[in-house]
Design a binder for these strands. Structure first.
Lengths: 135, 135
DNA sequence: CTTGACCTTCCAGTCACTGGAACCCCATAT
DNA sequence: ATATGGGGTTCCAGTGACTGGAAGGTCAAG
């Protein structure tokens, strides 16, 4: 199977497959006689695995770890769960930050009339003291 | 004021101030006789403005836009509000994505016993069909 | 006069791709 | 036979927003 077909089947762009090979996330592909990369059904499964974990926000490094655990039939489920739980922590951390940002922005935009006049509480807030010096 | 002091006062690292200058987000700093960058209180205000908007997740490009609006006394509050509302949309979008990721990961980890045995629903899910083919 | 803490520039690395140039290969239509 | 179009190959550069580090100049204190 050529890289284009592998890309289609796995959902990972051809360019990205080559990139994953170049950084060692996947082993170098077998080559056909003409020099083209040649992929098997198993390779596609690996690419799909990568695709799914990437979509769940795991870093490429973590995906590498997950791939190793996947291949290692002696792994403990605890080691996998630990990696996943750590990632959940990071995601929740980020959600919290974004929610705080969101609330601040909503407070600001609520106070801005948003018309033709130049005076704007949003810019005022960006320009003035952050919060506590208003007391 | 030297760059180190400006960094301290504004909260923007010296390295980052130079970077902002290099990409044109801020104009080239005045130079003292020894060639050192020299910052004024007004420069510090600008850096603080940048710091605050960056912390609210605006891209450097958007921060540039906000700086222009800030300097332009003829701007309309509507233009500022529009930029902010657009950013709120992006933030909410991202929060939604992360919440969906979080839920998926929690569902997965809940089903994983996390002990010494190798069988693990998390890896199974990453390896198997995504969702719909389970039906 | 030396030490250490500043400052300067410039280049490289991060993360995870993505775009593009320049080239090769292959099947089909003319 | 050949032109065309669509694969594939490599390698280099760019993205965003910094950050680290090397190599060197400057300055105040001991």
């Amino acid at each position: 199977m050529n890289i284009g077909t592998a890309a289609e089947e796995s959902g990972v762009p051809a360019k990205t497959i080559r990139y994953y090979e170049s950084i060692g996330l996947i082993p170098p592909a077998r080559r056909a006689e003409n020099g083209y990369r040649d992929y098997s059904g198993f390779d596609i499964e690996t690419l799909k695995f990568i695709q799914r974990t990437r979509k769940l926000g795991f870093s490429v490094k973590d995906v590498g770890g997950l791939l190793q655990l996947w291949r290692d039939k002696e792994r403990t489920s605890a080691s996998v769960k630990a990696l996943a739980l750590r990632h959940i922590d990071e995601v929740e951390q980020r959600i919290g930050e974004l929610q705080s940002i969101r609330q601040t922005l909503i407070d600001l935009t609520d106070r801005c009339h948003g018309d033709d006049r130049p005076d704007c509480p949003i810019l005022d807030e960006f320009a003035q003291v952050p919060n506590e010096a208003r007391d």
